[in-house]
């Protein structure tokens, strides 16, 4: 009995600090986002008394569904592009020699260690009307002098892919590294061409990595704010921009909370879907795929 009491006490001692901290500073604020959605705004940028559905009514404005749709679309496109680029690269990294592979890994991780703002800004310099890419495109006759590379959806998409690509490469590489490449040989031995072996054996073999890459790119993309803010324009605003606008420009906190609540629900949807999908596979498969 005494030992059990001591174990109990020890568990509390190591659990409570982080539990209380996160409960107070993560759980409560998150609940607050949903609560404040139903609060009125005060003219001075504060939160008023009582409850109202005013915010929800304003969000019915056709502007918002368009922005939400654009956010979803750009995030899907970013995720697709990242996975398309990252999969062959992960395949190459897993198959190449030890030394070169370590260098590649370092080169992929390095951008992750540098300031994200700096990297976004670097694209602004490149895509600038007088920047290198623009001049190159004009010189090649691929763009007219009037073409605007910055401040549109394509620029946002490009920089989003740039920023999120490492987060697709790393989980896909981790999965490809664990993949038994003898299976590819086995498939070819059984008559499959290289492409068939890649599609029927390699892709299913790294499906956990694909799923992780999807989540790691798609979810942060949904919350993009700095990229559309710096390289996007009024026609390429995403939900993140609106949240920031309502917070800093209009100082309408209930409105910002409402948009955040929608964003939170959008993020939770794919997570729940994937959890449900995983439940369907046998517990043993799930365990194996977790690498336990």
């Amino acid at each position: 009995m005494k030992t059990r009491a001591r174990t109990r006490w020890a568990e509390c001692f190591v659990t409570l600090p982080s539990l209380v901290w996160l409960g107070l500073l993560f759980l409560v604020p998150t609940v607050l986002v949903f609560a404040i959605t139903f609060k009125p705004a005060t003219p001075y940028g504060g939160i008023g008394e009582g409850w109202t559905l005013e915010t929800l009514r304003t969000l019915g404005n056709p502007n918002y569904p368009a922005i939400i749709w654009r956010t979803l679309r750009l995030s899907m496109l970013t995720t697709g592009a990242c996975i398309l680029l990252a999969t062959p690269m992960a395949y190459y990294m897993a198959r190449t020699g030890e030394v070169w592979r370590r260098w590649l890994l370092l080169l992929v991780v390095l951008p992750f260690w540098t300031s994200s703002l700096v990297r976004i800004f670097a694209w602004k310099v490149l895509l600038h009307p007088e920047g290198l890419v623009k001049q190159a495109l004009v010189a090649l006759g691929l763009a007219g002098p009037e073409t605007m590379l910055l401040y549109n959806e394509n620029a946002v998409l490009l920089v989003m892919v740039y920023t999120e690509l490492p987060f697709a490469i790393l989980p896909l590489y981790a999965a490809a590294d664990k993949f038994d490449f003898q299976l590819i040989e086995a498939a070819k031995d059984l008559g499959a061409t290289s492409f068939r072996a890649f599609r029927s054996i390699f892709l299913p073999g790294i499906r956990v990595g694909l799923l992780t890459a999807f989540l790691m790119v798609f979810i942060p993309s949904l919350g993009s704010y700095v990229i559309p803010d710096v390289v996007g324009g009024p026609t390429s605003e995403m939900v993140g921009n609106k949240i920031a606008q309502r917070t800093f420009v209009d100082r309408n906190l209930p409105h910002a909370a409402g948009l955040s609540a929608i964003l939170a629900l959008t993020v939770v949807a794919p997570l729940v879907a994937i959890t449900v999908l995983r439940r369907k596979t046998s517990p043993r498969d799930a365990l194996r795929e977790e690498g336990i």
Partner: peptide, 29 residues
């Protein structure tokens, strides 16, 4: 208790930063 603890630790990792930023701002306000 630990399952609750784990979700509290795990969820901030998957939520977009902007949600965390705004929720904390609301909390401090």
């Amino acid at each position: 208790l630990q399952r609750l603890h784990f979700s509290l630790i795990y969820t901030p990792l998957v939520l977009p930063e902007i949600l965390m930023g705004l929720s904390m701002l609301l909390f401090f306000v």
